[in-house]
């Protein structure tokens, strides 16, 4: 499809077919990815009864109206959910980062004896876990059951993220830390004044990972949060989108469901172009070993 601009180079026919096929495949892929999203968007602006009698994919709203949005914006649950989620994302990510930074710093030091033991302790917990019930019982035992903090404290450190940060810190030249130490700098000064600026890209990546995982999580909230006023957004969404056609949830027309999806997803998608770069970098930091 796209022709090579270089004038003298002749591309053999076989390769030209290959490139054309490649481009066609990519177009098909993009269509497959975008159509469901377009369907949701079109549905959210459609008339409720018109959608009910319609079948198949929508690419354009039926009898365009914003009625569904009016009813979503009037739904108090969604806004309390938003508020709760915002709290969890902001406070949770902040604490996660503090803990992960300090942990990564200590694990990347080499002057103390128990270094191997601590590293082993941390990494082993990535590959083996106690499972759902023991975890639930521990959280209950600690007194976090039914508290919003149950969604923050038990998931403070994610070992995968910790490993990303530790790897970045190991890349900081020793001489920097040593000269700071000679100047009498303590650990916290070294960590926040010297190492932190140097691992800023990895720091950004890891905070994004934490923020997104807090934003998306619903399972732990389902286990631990019992009061509706404390529900995070994803639990409210679950009621509206998943349970609505069962007896547990409330009946909601499909167009309202679509509008809810849009309201709950657009903020993240708006931030997406700005954070994409960091995410991409993070995947590389985390996965490419050698």
């Amino acid at each position: 499809m796209k022709k090579n601009k270089g004038p003298a180079i002749r591309i053999p026919l076989g390769e030209r077919i290959f490139y054309a096929a490649d481009n066609v495949l990519m177009v098909i892929l993009c269509v497959c990815i975008l159509v469901p999203l377009l369907h949701v968007l079109a549905g959210s602006f459609s008339d409720g009864t018109a959608y009910m009698t319609h079948s198949g994919l929508l690419l354009w709203p039926l009898k365009p109206t914003t009625a569904a949005y009016a009813s979503v914006l009037g739904n108090k649950d969604i806004w309390t959910g938003y508020g709760n989620t915002l709290f969890i994302v902001v406070v949770g990510t902040g604490l996660d980062m503090l803990f992960t930074l300090v942990a990564a710093y200590v694990l990347s030091r080499r002057e103390y004896m128990l270094k191997k033991l601590f590293n082993l302790l941390v990494v082993f917990s990535m590959y083996f876990s106690g499972g759902m019930i023991p975890f639930f019982l521990v959280v209950k035992e600690v007194g976090l059951y039914k508290s919003t903090w149950a969604l923050i404290i038990p998931s403070l450190v994610n070992v995968f993220n910790l490993v990303i940060l530790r790897t970045a810190m190991l890349g900081v030249p020793d001489s920097l830390e040593e000269s700071a130490q000679l100047d009498g700098a303590g650990h916290l000064t070294i960590l926040f004044r010297i190492i932190f600026p140097l691992v800023l890209p990895s720091f950004a990546v890891v905070s994004l990972y934490y923020a997104v995982s807090h934003w998306n999580s619903w399972f732990n909230a389902m286990l631990f949060i019992k009061e509706r006023s404390k529900y995070p957004l994803q639990l409210i969404l679950r009621e509206i989108l998943i349970l609505s056609d069962t007896d547990e949830g409330m009946m909601m027309s499909e167009t309202i469901q679509f509008a809810t999806i849009v309201v709950a997803t657009v903020p993240i998608l708006c931030a997406y172009p700005f954070i994409q770069r960091y995410f991409v970098k993070g995947v590389m930091v985390g996965a490419v070993k050698g």
Binding site: L29, C30, I33, L34, P36, L37, V40, V212, W215, N216, W218, Q234, L237, R238, I240, L241, I242, Q257, I261, A264, T265, I268, L269, Y272, P273, Q276, F279, V280
Partner: peptide, 17 residues
């Protein structure tokens, strides 16, 4: 850019769709 988008949709929303 297009192919990364769905990654940012939460599991609950995905299942709703």
């Amino acid at each position: 850019t297009i192919s990364y988008v769905p990654h940012f949709i939460s599991t609950v929303v995905l299942c709703g769709i």
